[in-house]
């Protein structure tokens, strides 16, 4: 019998991680457990997480009904346009955003840059995105996410990649898509790929899961769990190229649990209105009447880049291993 991976990890995580916060009488409190980390992502389901670069944008996002904001120094479209090394944001800017809103605040760390993640955790960020949008710090290793109290979300283009991130301790997965393009095709491909690969696993006889794990380059315990559940054991959001309410509804109909919007909102003509429209489209993703209504009069969408025209060095989805 294959042991249950998440239970095993939960057990490991509950050892010696008693929270120091709170009165001494609550010595039985456990913080930073897998259940608390994954549970946080469950609460974001059906919602929209918006990239913001200032406290003012964060307030606009919260007013529009965002479930969380992602604090970063430049939105992906500007990182693309301006080039250079993209790093974790300025702590002052992140603190201002934390002060400005009551909803959760996420922030990005470079792939493999565990010290950026330590800084973000100490700042009180609610979720760390180990993100391919920033310039990777380690060409071989991602962050050991089990060693943190703060939960992590990571990008994936396929099931094997998603499971390797879970094995490292990610508590939430998002499709990578192709950030900063305003073109949704890669997000569609990644979501369809992950769902199709899960479907194939679920149809396999148990004895074939070992070879499947080898092909996916992922732990057999996780592969077995996914086959049994018929889905990832964590929340699966979509990201990378969502620019319109219809894009958001498309990704929800394809099985996403929720939506990250990066450049799509604050690079558009009327950010507040577009933000509200994308939130409403994500909630009522199956109701064409609502989608018609919210799609009207939004003004200019962000200027798009066709992913097919991007040279391979400019494709963020290829970053991560």
């Amino acid at each position: 019998m294959v042991p249950d991976w998440s239970e095993k990890r939960r057990h490991i995580m509950s050892q010696g991680q008693t929270a120091t916060a709170g009165p001494a009488t609550d010595s039985a409190r456990h913080a930073g457990t897998a259940r608390v980390k994954r549970g946080m992502a469950e609460m974001l389901k059906g919602g929209v997480i918006m990239d913001v670069v200032t406290a003012e944008q964060a307030r606009i996002a919260e007013d529009a009904g965002a479930v969380a904001v992602m604090a970063l120094e430049r939105v992906p479209a500007d990182i693309r346009a301006q080039g250079g090394v993209a790093r974790m944001s300025d702590p002052d800017m992140i603190s201002e955003i934390i002060e400005a809103v009551s909803i959760p605040v996420m922030a990005k760390a470079r792939i493999g840059h565990f010290v950026e993640a330590q800084v973000l955790q100490a700042l009180g960020v609610d979720y760390v995105d180990e993100s391919e949008v920033l310039t990777p710090a380690d060409p071989h290793h991602h962050i050991d996410k089990w060693s943190f109290t703060v939960p992590f979300v990571c990008g994936a283009t396929n099931l094997g990649e998603a499971l390797r991130r879970l094995a490292e301790g990610a508590a939430m997965i998002r499709s990578k898509g192709e950030a900063g393009t305003g073109e949704v095709s890669n997000a569609v491909v990644h979501m369809r790929t992950i769902r199709a690969e899960i479907g194939r696993l679920s149809a396999l006889p148990a004895e074939e899961l070992y070879a499947a794990a080898k092909e996916l380059r992922a732990p057999v315990e996780l592969v077995t769990e996914v086959a049994r559940l018929g889905r990832l054991p964590v929340v699966l959001f979509t990201a990378g190229g969502i620019a319109t309410p219809a894009d958001a509804a498309l990704m929800m109909q394809l099985g996403a649990d929720g939506v990250f919007v990066g450049s799509g909102i604050f690079k558009s003509g009327d950010p507040a209105r577009r933000a509200r429209a994308i939130v409403e489209a994500t909630t009522m993703f199956n109701d064409p009447d609502v989608l018609v209504k919210v799609s009207r009069g939004l003004g200019e969408a962000m200027v798009g880049i066709n992913v097919a025209e991007l040279p391979s060095a400019a494709r963020y989805a290829d970053r991560g291993w």
Partner: peptide, 15 residues
Amino acid sequence: RRNAFGRQVDSFEVD
């Protein structure tokens, strides 16, 4: 009181 116990790093389980 919203977020009374703190931010996500303070989230916890207890019996």
